[in-house]
Design a protein around this nucleic acid. Structure first.
Lengths: 239, 239
DNA sequence: ATTAAATGTTAGATAAACCTAACATTACAA
DNA sequence: TTGTAATGTTAGGTTTATCTAACATTTAAT
């Protein structure tokens, strides 16, 4: 077996930097936050990031923030592409539920083959979004922007399409499974409750009361904004 | 992510012991042979096998041979099952060629999920053999015996089904790809050449001269033996 | 402006899986 | 049966990715 160009762990660190710097929140990545995202202690993350700097995959100065280099970003986007195509395969073909696919894809994304991914993509009919509604980068690492916002940023009374949810938020995914809520469901944002950030939505003629996490983590697209191809409070992110 | 029950490498060592002790040749596994099979130096293999002995996965006494315990064999058979189901998926669904699937399956077999494997098996229609003609163990780790012999053990003039070829023999796999030879092809063993163990086979009305490696590595089943459900020179193995 | 809290860095230790060099045992062939 | 070749074992070192403990810098609050 050929040696991997990047180790399993190096790949995870690059993905974590991408997730923080271009994901929901989009902030500069610091060592502490990275170490938390990766489940390691700060000195561990620090050491690895020095190594990735040597390899010119990240930009990182003493006491400064961490950013991906062009090469590092390319590698990280390739991982995101692999992750999301595997998730789509597991969901669409092997019928794994929405909340099971993420963990398995965490392993599968490291399989060192671009060809498997390209063939899976074709098999799946060149999907543009994974089962969580996140856009799938193309072979060049480009993602189409997606017009979307959190439900909490929506306007009560309007209709939305449920398009995305953080795929690593286990309890939320289970909540949605329980109420049979799926990507692409049409929902109506009925009302804000004004208490603990809760709200009420209507799906298939049934009202569901949802909590703050749901309001802030679930991403929706308002059909009006889609049509106008502009959305004042658009929030989109890659990871 | 949960910790793996066995590390990536521990799995490979168990598989290597199985391959030597129950594969073609079926000999007792020694440290030197294991180290060669795994591409490591003898002390490395020795150390790992002491660890696997601690974990009760192998039986191994000083200066003695290595054998799998019941638990070790179960784990190794599970790996063989995963490997062969992934190979079948890659070949049947993603249309990878016969000689490409082995290397990719070497990675995929370590994905820690039995459920993916069970669903793939169903998707593929519960195949009994992988693209190389090797039998796929069931969930319990049982393999059906296969009546087969090497072509060199066959009788010139008879018709055979090409059922198996060592999936790690790259140059042989490429030779077969080149002549468009596939598992399940009907071939006639035309004659022995009596020189360097060479022979002639006939496939789709074309004669092909094959060398010693082909004669000794390619497995065939003689239809007569299959029908009688017994074969005097049956050679079957698991890995 | 000062200080406390948050964050980042360094140094040194550990475990896994590999190595080389040296030594021990077994197997077999003369 | 004895000596050499093949195989196995031990000891000690390397690399990767982790840790803890101690120290340094930056940020933010009074």
């Amino acid at each position: 077996m050929k040696p991997r160009p990047l180790s399993y762990q190096e790949e995870n660190y690059l993905k974590a930097v991408l997730k923080i710097s271009e994901g929901r929140g989009k902030k500069d990545a610091g060592i502490l936050e990275l170490s938390r995202a990766l489940g390691v202690k700060p000195p561990t993350a620090h050491q690895m990031l020095k190594k990735l700097k040597e390899k010119k995959l990240v930009l990182f100065e003493k006491y400064g923030k961490v950013m991906l280099s062009a090469g590092g970003r390319k590698a990280a986007m390739a991982l995101v592409r692999k992750h999301r195509i595997w998730e789509t395969f597991l969901h669409d073909v092997l019928k794994f539920s929405w909340d099971e696919v993420h963990e398995l894809a965490e392993y599968l994304e490291h399989i060192p083959s671009d060809e498997i991914i390209n063939r899976l993509e074709k098999l799946l009919g060149n999907p543009k979004f994974d089962p969580h509604g996140d856009p799938i980068p193309d072979v060049g690492g480009n993602v189409r922007p997606a017009f979307r916002k959190t439900l909490s940023m929506g306007t009560p009374g309007r209709n939305y399409h449920l398009v995305a949810v953080s795929d690593s938020h286990q309890s939320l995914l289970q909540f949605m499974s329980k109420y049979n809520l799926k990507i692409n469901d049409k929902i109506k944002y009925v009302s804000e409750l004004g208490l603990d950030g809760m709200g009420v939505i209507r799906v298939r003629n049934k009202n569901i009361t949802v909590g703050s996490t749901f309001m802030h983590e679930v991403k929706v697209v308002c059909e009006q904004c889609m049509k106008k191809c502009k959305c004042p409070d658009e929030v989109w992110c890659v990871v």
